[in-house]
Design a binder for these strands. Structure first.
Lengths: 233, 233
DNA sequence: TCAAATACACTACCATGGTAATATGTCAAC
DNA sequence: GTTGACATATTACCATGGTAGTGTATTTGA
């Protein structure tokens, strides 16, 4: 199927005043993560440039960055394709994220700064509201923000960037996990446990809760391998 | 000082048959890490392209990647500069590397695969030879290889890439640490302790030795801040 | 002498054209 | 029907020209 056959409204939200390459990167990345661009689908510089109303150069730069994220595969002189979901890479992304976030949360717990705790509590309140309303998108956004607060509050912005990069592999799996009832509340309670451990200054417990929290993906991978085999490898 | 005033022999090693952007990236990166390109020095697409005998496009792509590594600062419409050594970023790079490598070595220890152990022992032998001969470059290369073996032996290639990226910040500091006598032997013995822990299947001890090993940088940072303030911030 | 305005040089950024390598479709030979 | 060769189309890659934005030097006004 040709790219231009698809509806592409969100792909057109480009502000010509801002640098285009990062915008294009974010745009295509989002489309890959929510699977509007399906795994294994061909992407071409020329066609994307046409769709987005820009030249091929910034598109090319965006695709290179996506290739570093492992979200597209570039085969020189052959073509560029949305990367299939490779279980091994998803598992490795989980490993990297867990290693980093567990270390981050330990540092946060050791600091035990009331100001940080306050920000986390505010995030928790917003999460609860979203969970109660069944607002999936709102909850996911606040979930992202929760983890962002942890890294940035202890001045680990680059660690956050790394987490963000590898998290792409995980997000693509997560959107496929059907939003089961009570799932959001479950995640909220895990976050709550982490914050409680942080506030008690217990780094060891905080690490344990964080690790368990992040290992949730394992469950969704198993169910997906059975349900949607075509998007893998 | 203009770029072209500098001797630039190693910058010219470009194979026109291979993709140029990655070659240029590696070339400039090496020059930054060994400080032949000094911190805060201006880099221009045009001048670099001229020196390397290529066009500006692949140079630009290389600089963008170096900016992601935090090794150059790009100021749109103003210029691109070799990034100064920012202590905060060096410390964060250490944090990220430690988090990842500690987790990696734990996984290696839990596996306790004799084949991996054999590869590590071979590397140790080469390290000892280099240390005894005072072969600094040889030792550093084998040191790199040692850590590479750890990650790849448990199929964590992306983790290795991340480590590599952030390690740039650390390498630039390390080349400045004068090669003190006995220093290489000290590093060798730390590696040895890690391998011994791995072979005994003791993940906890392996993690501890790895953490201590990687925290060596802290010592060099302190002495450097006093000796070479001009290359910082 | 000094301050504000102006001209200039330089930058990264984007657009676009050319090129070698690869995939695909067509057709002939067996 | 199958296989091989050839023509064509498409690709990512690199080269190069144009543009808006930014610092700096120079000039202009007092």
């Amino acid at each position: 199927m040709a790219l231009t056959d698809r509806q592409s409204t969100s792909l057109l939200a480009i502000d010509p005043k801002l640098p285009m390459a990062p915008q294009i990167y974010g745009n295509i990345r989002q489309s890959i993560l929510n699977l509007r661009l399906a795994p294994k689908q061909a992407l071409s510089e020329k066609e994307l440039a046409l769709m987005l109303g820009v030249s091929r150069t910034p598109v090319r730069e965006a695709l290179i960055k996506l290739a570093e994220d492992g979200l597209v595969d570039i085969f020189p002189q052959r073509g560029t394709f949305v990367a299939p979901i490779r279980v091994s890479e998803v598992l490795e992304a989980q490993f990297i994220r867990e290693a980093l976030e567990v270390s981050v949360v330990a540092r946060v717990a050791e600091l035990s700064d009331p100001a940080i705790s306050a920000r986390l509590r505010e995030s928790l309140a917003r999460q609860k509201r979203a969970a109660d309303n069944g607002d999936l998108d709102g909850f996911l956004a606040e979930d992202e923000n929760f983890h962002f607060i942890l890294s940035v509050s202890v001045n680990l912005t680059r660690a956050w960037k790394v987490i963000q990069n590898v998290k792409g592999q995980l997000d693509r799996v997560r959107v496929l996990s059907l939003p089961e009832p009570g799932h959001l509340t479950e995640l909220y309670e895990q976050h709550m446990a982490i914050v409680t451990a942080i506030e008690s200054g217990n780094a060891k417990v905080a690490k344990k809760h964080m690790a368990k929290h992040l290992q949730q993906v394992f469950r969704t991978i198993d169910s997906l391998l059975a349900k949607r085999p075509e998007i893998f490898d």
